[in-house]
Nucleic acid binder design. Structure first.
Lengths: 215, 215
DNA sequence: ACTCTCACGCAACTGTCTTCGCGTTAGACT
DNA sequence: AGTCTAACGCGAAGACAGTTGCGTGAGAGT
């Protein structure tokens, strides 16, 4: 009847040995991983369909075939669901290049970021993020694990590009933050390339300014 | 807010009203104004007490003494309540100076902004903002009326300070956005003055960069 | 002062979210 | 292969947000 039950009984449909996170859990194995994938897939679908709302847990339960009680036990809130999806997707969705050409790397990343934020899930993610930030038990654990890997990637890009003054934090302040707020307010220009070029110019400006004025 | 009040009235007689004082409504008088003040005061208190959550309407009803049905009829959602409080408070809470000294004005504003965002209500406001952005019927009306007056103030500050290249939008990208996201992620330095100086330097850097490279 | 009617209080109602106890299943481990 | 137990399914109970119809009181207009 449900996707999960079918997956459980059909040996051919068993997962192709891709160990999902669930680090530190006592039982990371097959069924738990399958339910997790089914739930996260349902969250993605619902976000894509319903526009930008954070999906309700009963809706995710029906869509995924996983019982609502199970979802409540594992995730507790809808926001945690969205955060979990984001954690699983961010790295492949907005890769951070490091070719050595700073402006090109920044432009490529920013353009993709703008496009990503404009997607239906973009606002849902921001919503979930603010909600998670308000509830320490969710945010305190999730936020660092979301941010830290990105910071390392940024550092590689900056090193490769010869940026001596900029820090990964500056990427947060000068790129991610304006794109996030701009998406919320709908104040981003329609032309994503122009918007990206604008933001990248700001980054370059800061790098040059600090070089001239010392750190 | 205006949409809700319009729904209560004759649809044809609707003229646009200032979201703060509700002037122009058919009955702006004593009782309506009192209930509104009582409700907004309760929202402020609840936000200050409960940390950073968006208060539930039943809670606001009990605290304010205004019946829940009334609040539902006028505001519709808790997010609209928080937005309304923000609309009423922002101008006095984070004034935008225009003394002619650009760096001093920027620093004063940014410092106050950081302090304001760190307050309990700061996160609640961001939460409400993202939620409002996701529901067009609330956000489409409220967001412009929140942003536009600020943009004008910024323009005055920039003019007075002799900034020829910067736009009010840049203040959004370079100051408000980083402070917002930084507050969410808890990534702002503990030293608010240092953080403000950092962000202000970025603004100055962009102004100088554009002067040298043409717009 | 009188009338009109908008906004509010009231209470019952509906639908949905959320939790809980218990039995069952399926990985993990020996 | 056998045992153990964490994780899941299930249904019911509870709590809560949100809605609606109706009567009343308080501004607004004359």
């Amino acid at each position: 009847m449900t996707d999960v039950e079918r997956a459980d009984r059909d040996p051919a449909a068993s997962t192709d040995a891709s160990p999902v996170q669930a680090v530190g859990t006592t039982r990371p194995g097959g069924r738990t991983a399958r339910t997790r994938l089914a739930v996260l897939a349902a969250v993605r679908e619902l976000i894509a369909e319903t526009g930008e709302a954070v999906p309700s847990i009963p809706a995710v339960a029906e869509r995924s075939g996983v019982h609502a009680a199970t979802i409540y036990r594992r995730w507790r809130t809808p926001e945690a669901l969205v955060i979990d999806v984001a954690l699983a997707d961010v790295n492949e969705r907005s890769p951070i290049p490091a070719t050595g050409d700073l402006r090109a790397d920044l432009t490529a990343y920013t353009t993709q970021l703008i496009g990503d934020a404009a997607r239906p899930g973009g606002l849902a993610f921001l919503h979930a993020l603010t909600a998670a930030a308000g509830t320490p038990e969710v945010g305190a654990a999730a936020l660092p694990s979301l941010v830290e890997p990105r910071m390392e990637h940024f550092q590689r890009m900056l090193d490769a590009g010869g940026a001596t003054e900029l820090t990964p934090m500056d990427m947060l302040s000068l790129l991610i933050a304006p794109v996030s707020l701009g998406t919320m307010l709908g104040s981003l220009p329609d032309d994503a390339d122009a918007a990206a070029a604008h933001l990248v110019d700001n980054v370059i400006a800061v790098e040059e300014y600090r070089r001239r004025h010392g750190n």
